[in-house]
């Protein structure tokens, strides 16, 4: 088939992807031009073209904050813990749901666990503040069981755990959906054959289900590496207080407090670019790893 023949046959397909390409170019690539403000002392009235250039000054400021090490550490720690908890939890939850026999039960649980995903952190934060208060329901339960009241949101020993667990609660249901979809793609004849060979439930999960969704697990884990600096701005902003700055302050909350002093578009731009750069680097390397160990590649 010559190229001409190919074009004659396939041109409608190319026409069909044109709107998508235009969309991506217009809304994903064109705005990247705004990255220039990270290297400017940006003023709205002067615009992109006339704001004075300041080189790396915004980045130098970001790296020279006295608390830089502390908030970067908190960010990475919380984000990584969240990614790990989210991935593992989602796989386990998907397997459990997949094994449930009663469809209605499965659907009900699935709906319940992903319901929190649709509530904003402002709402969930209010609920959590109530639940976790010194005389809230959780502490009352602890006291009734003979324990001591804990400041889940106010003490440095609890705060990260509270953030990670509440983030897990909100997000795990949604992450589960992709795994459930992947599970349906596993050929049921494999299960039937294994069952005839005498494999029990756990054997089948181990030898059939898990290998079946391995590419999905690796892919999602790889992609989520790009989020390693996304510790959850809204969540922490809703839950934290000065008492837990030591363990809970992340890049975004710190810059947010900084930005309140004056409109610091350029600093915020620099922070965004810094986070994207780290994320990009991690995604590229994880893509390489995914290709190498899971045989996953785009092209």
């Amino acid at each position: 088939m010559t190229f001409r023949e190919y074009l004659k046959r396939a041109w409608p397909l190319y026409v069909m992807i044109v709107p998508g390409v235009i969309f991506v170019l217009l809304f994903r690539y064109y705005p990247m031009y705004g990255i220039v403000i990270a290297f400017q002392d940006y003023s709205l009235a002067k615009g992109f073209l006339n704001s004075p250039w300041v080189g790396w000054e915004n980045f130098e400021r970001l790296f020279s904050f006295a608390e830089f090490g502390r908030f970067l550490g908190n960010t990475v720690l919380i984000a990584v813990a969240k990614i790990v908890a989210d991935q593992i939890g989602a796989v386990i939850l998907a397997l459990l749901l997949n094994e449930a026999r009663v469809i209605l039960f499965r659907r009900a649980i699935q709906t319940l666990v992903y319901l929190p995903h649709f509530l904003s952190w402002i709402v969930l934060g209010g609920i959590l503040l109530d639940i976790l208060a010194p005389y809230g329901i959780l502490n009352q339960a602890i006291v009734n069981l003979g324990g001591e009241r804990q400041l889940f949101l106010g003490s440095n020993s609890w705060f990260r755990g509270t953030v990670i667990l509440s983030g897990f609660w909100k997000n795990v249901g949604f992450s589960t959906i992709v795994y459930l979809a992947a599970l349906t793609a596993i050929n049921p004849t494999l299960h039937e054959a294994a069952a005839i060979d005498g494999a029990g439930r756990f054997r089948r999960i181990w030898h059939i289900t898990l290998p079946g969704i391995r590419p999905t697990i690796v892919l999602l884990a790889a992609l989520s590496l790009g989020d390693v600096l996304q510790a959850g701005f809204e969540q922490i902003l809703t839950l934290y207080s000065p008492a837990v700055y030591r363990t809970g302050d992340i890049i975004d909350t710190y810059v947010y407090r900084h930005g309140i002093v004056s409109a610091q578009y350029s600093l915020a731009g620099a922070v965004g670019l810094f986070k994207s750069f780290i994320g990009f680097f991690l995604i590229v390397s994880s893509y390489y790893l995914a290709d190498r160990y899971a045989g996953y590649r785009i092209l």
Binding site: P242, Y245, Y254, I260
Partner: peptide, 12 residues
């Protein structure tokens, strides 16, 4: 921002 964080944290 640093100074205010330090102050709030120290006081509490």
């Amino acid at each position: 921002a640093s100074l205010n964080s330090l102050e709030a944290e120290t006081f509490v």
